[in-house]
């Protein structure tokens, strides 16, 4: 490899620095050159404002330890802050984890007092959460029915962006990430909240589309099997 080809290219952008790393060389060589380049950068003003740094490693897999190592090197300069490390390569395990977080878990049931329904990913609940019942998800919560119990969304990483959606929103408590809000309305008021939530489905026995209250549909247990299987 010609000595002149640089392994780490530092690009200045309006919103900070981008470090583009060669994706074919040995990882060890990258670190050596990164340290040299940073040490040699005369235009990195130690007393200036904090500069955000994005690292592009291209088609190189980089482990969590290696990410930490890169951050550590860059953070040894007080005014540099690693914003993101971007790689085009994922392990299957990481992919599974992402899929797990992005999937929608569909449940058809009533979460009754004293019951806890907790899922990885986003929860789509077709049915009610009664007072005293709890639903929780690492992602978002969608309730097609009345939410009268407790809902905790965003119970995974980056939980603050999660949302809670309900046809009838009358919860005793909501939690998003680490933030909790309480319902100050009294219980009787919440209980009297009415809803007529309807579900259309093809009834095999009569060969027609039937529209029924969702609660009645759940009770009869005659939702089409695609629903039941989930």
């Amino acid at each position: 490899m010609p000595a002149t080809q640089s392994l780490v290219t530092i690009k200045g952008r309006k919103d900070g620095l981008v470090l583009v790393m060669n994706e074919a060389c040995a990882y060890r060589d990258l670190l050596i050159e990164l340290k040299e380049k940073l040490a040699a950068s005369t235009n990195l003003d130690q007393n200036g404002p904090v500069i955000s740094v994005k690292i592009e490693v291209g088609n190189r897999y980089i482990s969590t330890d290696q990410r930490d190592q890169l951050k550590q090197i860059i953070h040894s300069y007080d005014h540099l802050k690693v914003e993101a490390i971007h790689s085009n390569v994922l392990t299957y395990a990481e992919l599974d984890q992402i899929k797990e977080q992005e999937k929608i878990v569909t449940m058809v049931r009533i979460v009754r007092s004293g019951q806890v329904l907790s899922v990885q990913g986003n929860l789509l609940l077709i049915g009610d959460v009664n007072p005293g019942g709890v639903v929780s998800a690492s992602g978002n919560i969608y309730v097609l029915g009345s939410l009268r119990g407790v809902a905790s969304a965003g119970q995974g990483e980056d939980g603050n962006n999660a949302v809670i959606v309900a046809s009838i929103m009358a919860p005793t408590q909501l939690k998003i990430g680490e933030t909790i809000s309480r319902n100050e309305r009294n219980t009787a008021e919440v209980l009297t909240e009415r809803h007529r939530f309807e579900c259309a489905y093809l009834d095999d026995h009569i060969g027609k589309i039937v529209i029924d209250h969702i609660q009645a549909t759940i009770k009869k247990g005659n939702l089409p099997f695609t629903f039941n299987k989930m």
């Binding site: 009754r112 007092s113 007072p131 005293g132 219980t187 209980l191």
Partner: peptide, 23 residues
């Protein structure tokens, strides 16, 4: 009454787990 309905709801949830008992 609210408290009685709440407890009934809890019991219904427990009964639903008893497979030999009809709804």
């Amino acid at each position: 009454e609210i408290s009685s309905v709440r407890d009934a709801d809890r019991i219904i949830g427990l009964l639903e787990q008893e497979k030999q008992v009809s709804p």
